[in-house]
Design a protein around this nucleic acid. Structure first.
Lengths: 346, 346
DNA sequence: CTGAAAGCGCTTACAG
DNA sequence: CTGAAAGCGCTTACAG
């Protein structure tokens, strides 16, 4: 069955295409009778305008693209929900797109979406931007905010704003805290190739904290995995079985932390009495685990808020300078950590 | 800065537009030199074809739309990941779209996406389809599979296939089990308006099980909430504080179950010694809670598998009949349930 | 208030 | 192997 197009509808209604178009787009100057007639025909024939054709003509949508690297990351999900509210409050609408395909380049995908959807601006969550790929982004010439993205330190920041956290400092904070309450044998659950850069930065924070407390870094306390419950479980198992002297674990994600905690509890250990644990991200369910897991909370609200703010800054006044913002994380100390007992000192 | 279009590139390369188009689309019959030259120009000027224009011409994409009702539901997320793999294995690609806007009609959104993206078929996850809105879907004339959707019982199933679970039976199974191991005072955590239909069906299963065991249904053991940790927590609190005789809780989602379990543990109760608990969905983290929570596992893999299978059935042979499939859920008994002790009988 | 016509950026027979 | 031209379905000055 052939689809009806605007010409068919015009013919059926005995009017010109332009009039139909005006009705579709809610333009004011159409006689009520004409409008009603067209509307009823549209309804009767179940006509839906072809958006591709529409986009082709409509130069600027007031659409903001929110592009997310990776599939279903609860951390980003929360940010997206917050961002959408703010975008809508500004009378724009959000076009959400997940970049699931591992192969796709982050810059490429921005360009593609901008061209296809005629986006007025883009907020990109996550991803990896090296200087080579950024060149193409620059020529896009569109308000762009990168949030929680990996960006090379020497990149040309003249054409995008960014929001990030200090990964080194955040990890340092958690591990420093563990050291302060007497822990010395502290394990690190690190992401492997899956998130190399962030993993490296958080590891640096871990090492720095140990150093500052005069604790020697021991490679056997450091293990690579992925951001999954199971990986957390297995990493903890491997680590604890061969290094029973470990008294604390710092996991670079809450998901890993939950998996690790589950292993500990199932193997008869107590949290925090036997082993303290701190995760990363501040996901809601870390709080609903029992005992509630301590975590380095990423400032989700602020990330969302600042991203939108920076974007509209650029959007409303193209003369404005881009800004690179670093937000603070917060160490949430909950029920999964405890000061180490004197007799545990080795 | 003006974007380059295909004509600009053609001019720059001293060729016709058609040749550029051929290169972009990897058509074979272009001389290597010509191709290389065009490719280098494309690269140099950072040209990206406009997808809207492309879609306008390309009649059928081999794209399958996977549309998801609601925002970030971990249950659907898993299904989507599985579906994507299978779609790709069939040499189609998936276009994922979340229908976040509460106001949007499920049928409308399918139609819109099909027209805009020229989808070859659609799998819709969740949502609510009444007979009125379905009329429009019928005239779309496209392979369509509704998975885990609410559909009126008397709807015309001639133009779509569907995959669902038996909500009544699934809930019955869980509650019947609790009765069999001696529980009598069983609470129900039900979704409120947020998911009325499924809530009603699961409640029916709950009531049927109690009836079959000669247990009187007590309205004060039934409470409405939403699918959130917090709601689960609060519902359990309200319920247990005023009805301490409750020995088991059936939650209509794992998220609620985790929240409820957290309340119980934090208030000093033991699971399952004091209170047994069963959730619904089979989400991964129900297993990583401690104790591991029992749950009614939805057949995620089968839902994904069957959805894709039904779709390609329709796609590859339009003469094929549509099918309505009901899949079995599985009660996973884990560490959160226990047989009630004799002395607890009232 | 309305319509004919141009054009958005692409693809694809068709003709060479 | 390549190019000129038609056309995909829409919007929007422009002219009435």
């Amino acid at each position: 069955m052939k689809d009806y197009n605007i010409r068919d509808i015009a013919k059926l209604a005995n009017v010109g295409v332009s009039t139909v178009s005006r009705v579709i787009n809610d333009h004011p100057d159409v006689k009520k009778e004409t409008r009603d007639k067209i509307l009823s025909i549209i309804d009767e024939y179940n006509y839906i305008p072809n958006n591709s054709a529409r986009n082709l003509k409509l130069l600027n949508g007031n659409h903001i693209g929110v592009l997310v690297r990776g599939s279903f990351n609860p951390f980003f999900s929360q940010i997206v929900e917050l961002i959408e509210k703010k975008i809508n409050a500004n009378n724009y609408s959000m076009i959400l797109h997940y970049n699931i395909n591992d192969l796709s380049d982050d810059s490429e995908s921005i360009i593609e979406q901008v061209k296809e959807k005629r986006l007025g601006g883009v907020i990109y969550l996550g991803g990896n931007f090296n200087n080579d790929s950024m060149v193409h982004l620059k020529s896009l010439n569109i308000p762009l905010v990168l949030a929680s993205s990996i960006i090379e330190t020497d990149s040309d920041t003249s054409f995008f704003s960014s929001v990030r956290i200090d990964n080194v400092q955040s990890a340092y904070h958690a591990v420093d805290y563990l050291c302060q309450i007497g822990h010395k044998n502290i394990a690190l659950l690190s992401p492997g190739m899956y998130d190399v850069k962030n993993g490296l930065l958080r590891r640096r924070g871990y090492e720095k904290a140990l150093n500052d407390h005069g604790i020697t870094i021991d490679e056997k306390y450091i293990i690579d995995g992925t951001y999954t419950f199971n990986s957390g479980f297995e990493m903890a198992k491997t680590l604890i079985e061969s290094n029973p002297e470990i008294t604390a674990i710092f996991a670079t994600s809450d998901i890993m932390a939950v998996g690790a905690a589950k292993y500990l509890l199932s193997s008869g250990k107590e949290i925090p009495e036997d082993i303290s644990i701190i995760g990363f991200d501040g996901l809601e369910y870390s709080q609903f685990f029992h005992p509630a897991l301590s975590t380095v909370k990423q400032p989700i609200e602020a990330i969302a808020f600042e991203s939108v703010k920076l974007l509209f800054d650029l959007l409303e006044n193209p003369e404005n300078k881009t800004q690179q913002i670093t937000l603070k994380t917060e160490l949430l100390v909950r029920d999964s950590v405890i000061k180490i007992k004197e007799h545990s000192y080795d």
